[in-house]
Write a protein that binds this DNA or RNA. Structure first.
Lengths: 347, 347
DNA sequence: TTCCTTTACTTGAACGATCTAATCATGCCT
DNA sequence: AGGCATGATTAGATCGTTCAAGTAAAGGAA
């Protein structure tokens, strides 16, 4: 460990008081320019760094942002959160914040952990992911006026504009995917989604349906809903592409897991090559999230701008924490980002 | 925000002094049992939680463990670190520690960041990943007597037993993979690795070579080295399986990326089905790391016990931080974990 | 000159915990 | 009874920073 350098050491070397050192660093406009220079030089020479714990005691600010790290459920889509996490750590550092991790089970468990953290480490803010309908966490945090941002829009109506959020426009992503397929000449474009009720899934389905309708195609009967898993996707795709099928020649999927399953189904001998009509034109498949798996198997996929989303979260938090107090009737800010389509061999 | 509860509030309610409250919580054996109960009750009733910043000021301990989160380089193997991270956060919490994240570029950049953190947040320890030969970071930390553990053994000889570490026995993993293939009747088992010099890669290659040799098979000419990438793996596999080839019927790979490339090569029409000898017995492929990609494409792979590794790191740190001071000539502890083989369709 | 402002800086207190040393019973031994 | 460990508790100092209040000097208006 290096010997500790305190503000008093700097003050002594610069020939000023502790408070002047503090001012030179935190409120430069109240010190004479020449004094400021002298202080900065002393800071440099001693390698002084402000002690967060002491500062936190006085100011009540920890300059910590806490976020939950989830176990990667099926393993495929887990990587989305991790890329977001990396972006968050990076952006936070640029704004002078650090990222603190925690784990928890379920909404209730997360609330308990948050309460613990607030008492002990006093993070300045939280970033919540995986928002859903009737999210206990957001209401709990709002009640206690704890600053937070969600990555994922508030899906309940009541919540409306209750807190700042950043999200990716899933509908725009599936719409772009659908347009891409239309441009390639496909007409009967199917959709593999999740059961209705999940905000994210419904949003993505809607982008596909809307785009088909705009092209004069009835999306009716062209979609299937299933839980998220490769096997589930394969089964649903079989159903959609199979004999009694709908003549579907391309599939937009709500996730890379389902898309991968669809890809398996589409390439199973004797089915897919026929479904699309010709052997040199297999069923096209597009996934969502542009996970490593998509890259590895050549799956065209909708890519979320995760670094930008993370930067957006930090920006909103910084405004909340370091900016001027917002007007009482000012609605919380939010940001909706457009994803992009990464085209590979599968479509 | 909830109103703050301090140790003084608890003391008042329990009718004792602040110090007694502190003792009841931190050194229970010096307070009378009855007093302790009274204090704990007051703690419970007020929802008191010790303020880390204040405690840290006095004790110099932050109860923070810092770790670098890397951008997922090729995206496939990135998920390894993330699973480790989750395990680390979980284990740390159980030992009363929290995990702080940071990013940095290169050894030098990481050292700068570590220096920053030490001055500001004063983490009690660091966990270093991706150790390599001539690691600047380990020597820097050792010089300054900053507690740390590495996930990955020290690859340089000099470093020897210079610091505690946890690692996974890569050689044991490839040995298990090779034995699995031998048991399935394969004789000419190839290896796709990285260029010599990386400790991890050499270790994994050695497990394969040793096992083949033990079975009376000369590993000479059965391996190729290339950089880590799906395309690289495909090219190297083509070379090994190709016409002038070595009659290889199975491949052990140093990573899932290379294995995936090998799988592509092995399934490319007209080559692989022949190389192995028969159409109903394609070339077998085994990867390393059991990434989501492996799961998705049915690739048999060597799985690292990441949660255990993380728990091991925390255990070593806890011993270092909370345990008694080790004898000066006591070599730092370490732990070498055995991976397991996850068998899927590819082998 | 006197009084009031403004600028630049300093002093003491406070944040909430723990450490050190002191206090106060209590029991035991001589 | 006096002396002395021993155990349980308390009072005051302290960690490093920033806030709030204060001082000293210079400038301007009356």
């Amino acid at each position: 460990m290096t010997e500790k350098v305190t503000i008093a050491d700097v003050a002594r070397l610069a020939g000023v008081s502790r408070q002047t050192v503090s001012n030179a660093l935190n409120t430069p406009d109240v010190v004479r320019e020449e004094t400021r220079q002298r202080v900065l030089e002393a800071v440099e020479r001693l390698g002084y760094r402000v002690n967060q714990a002491a500062r936190q005691m006085r100011t009540g600010r920890s300059r910590l942002i806490a976020i939950r790290i989830e176990p990667d459920r099926d393993g495929i889509n887990g990587s989305v959160l991790d890329r977001f996490l990396h972006g968050l750590t990076d952006s936070a550092a640029r704004s002078g914040y650090r990222v603190l991790l925690y784990t928890a089970d379920g909404d209730r468990g997360e609330i308990d952990t948050i309460e613990d953290l607030l008492g002990a480490y006093e993070p300045d803010a939280f970033v919540l992911t995986s928002t859903h309908h009737d999210d206990l966490r957001t209401s709990w945090l709002r009640e206690r006026k704890v600053p937070f941002v969600t990555f994922g829009r508030p899906w309940g109506d009541l919540d409306g504009a209750g807190h700042p959020w950043v999200d990716v426009n899933g509908a725009a992503g599936t719409a772009a995917a659908t347009r891409h397929l239309l441009a390639a000449g496909h007409r009967r474009i199917g959709f593999l989604g999740w059961p209705p009720g999940s905000g994210v899934g419904d949003d993505r389905r809607e982008g596909w349906a809307r785009t088909l309708a705009a092209a004069g195609i009835d999306p009716g009967g062209l979609s299937r809903a299933t839980s998220d898993g490769v096997a589930d996707g394969e089964a649903a795709a079989h159903d959609l592409l199979g004999p009694g099928g709908s003549g579907v020649t391309a599939l937009v999927c709500v996730s890379d897991s389902l898309a991968l399953g669809a890809l398996h189904a589409a390439r199973s001998p004797g089915l897919a090559w026929r479904a699309g009509g010709s052997a040199d034109r297999p069923v096209a498949v597009i996934g969502f999230d542009d996970t490593p798996v998509a890259k590895a198997v050549g799956l065209t996929s909708v890519s979320q701008p995760l670094a930008e989303a993370a930067a957006g979260c930090v920006a909103l938090l910084a405004r909340l924490l370091d900016g001027p107090a917002p007007a009482p009737d000012d609605p919380p800010a939010h940001e909706l980002l457009d994803p992009s389509l990464v085209v590979r061999q599968s479509a």
